[in-house]
């Protein structure tokens, strides 16, 4: 009986810590949120909500770091570690999208350090096949490699993004850039102008569509087209 009461008491403490962690998180007091979620995890390391709360708190701290333009690798690494542990205790798919986003940011921070980010991006996409940010970054890396097969794959990824999410404007810019680099000015113009329809104020698209248009006109005038 004593043991049962003790367990109930401990459980109530853990829930209180999680509750306090949530309250701190929602007012942006991430340090206190981290302290409370960590306290709950000291009692119950497999507590799903406490672990998720801790992962989200580290995520938010890292996001703040991005806004302040400070090195963020260690911050994202810490958040990603918590998501990795969380994935072992939460068999549902509810947290996968945030885990995927966290890996995307970690991949960017990894690239800033000059290291290979591709495995992180692949994991990110595997966790969430609708994470077009990760796909876009993966395609940019592939395009940059200059290897013909990789460049072709990059094109297919950009096309996949645009057919799935036509408002992902960056992919129009990036796909157009690829065509332009290959000297396929017609396709570059097609792609950029399609992007411009979706986002008429995008300065990169306005500029590049105009350049491609001028280039096509001059080729017509010179008899090349």
């Amino acid at each position: 009986m004593f043991l049962v009461l003790l367990l109930l008491g401990l459980s109530a403490c853990v829930e209180d810590d999680v509750k306090r962690g949530n309250e701190a998180f929602f007012i942006g007091d991430y340090d206190r949120a981290i302290a409370n979620f960590s306290k709950a995890l000291d009692q119950e390391p497999a507590h799903r909500d406490a672990r998720y709360g801790l992962a989200l708190s580290y995520f938010s701290v890292a996001e703040e770091g991005e806004r302040l333009h400070v090195p963020t690798f260690d911050l994202w690494k810490r958040a990603a570690d918590e998501f990795r542990i969380l994935s072992k205790i939460d068999s549902g798919r509810q947290v996968d999208a945030n885990h995927s986003t966290c890996l995307f940011y970690l991949a960017r921070a990894t690239m800033v350090k000059g290291e290979n980010a591709m495995p992180l991006l692949d994991r990110s996409i595997k966790l969430d096949s609708a994470n077009y940010f990760s796909m876009n970054l993966k395609a940019l890396i592939l395009a940059k490699s200059g290897i013909p097969e990789d460049v072709e794959m990059a094109k297919q990824i950009f096309i996949h993004i645009l057919t799935s999410e036509p408002m992902f404007v960056s992919a129009y810019v990036n796909l157009g850039n690829l065509y332009w680099d290959e000297g396929d000015i017609e396709s570059a113009w097609d792609t950029w102008s399609m992007g411009l329809i979706k986002s008429p104020d995008n300065s990169a698209l306005i500029r590049w569509t105009k350049i491609a248009e001028d280039s096509l006109k001059s080729r017509v005038l010179s008899g090349e087209l």
């Binding site: 509750k19 949530n22 998720y52 996001e63 940019l140 960056s170």
Partner: peptide, 23 residues
């Protein structure tokens, strides 16, 4: 509580309003 926080973070981080960073 925590799932609401997760949904909020996801919505914010996947916003297409400022994708220029990825260009």
């Amino acid at each position: 509580g925590v799932d609401d926080a997760g949904a909020y973070i996801l919505e914010k981080s996947r916003s297409l309003e400022s994708p220029d960073a990825f260009v």
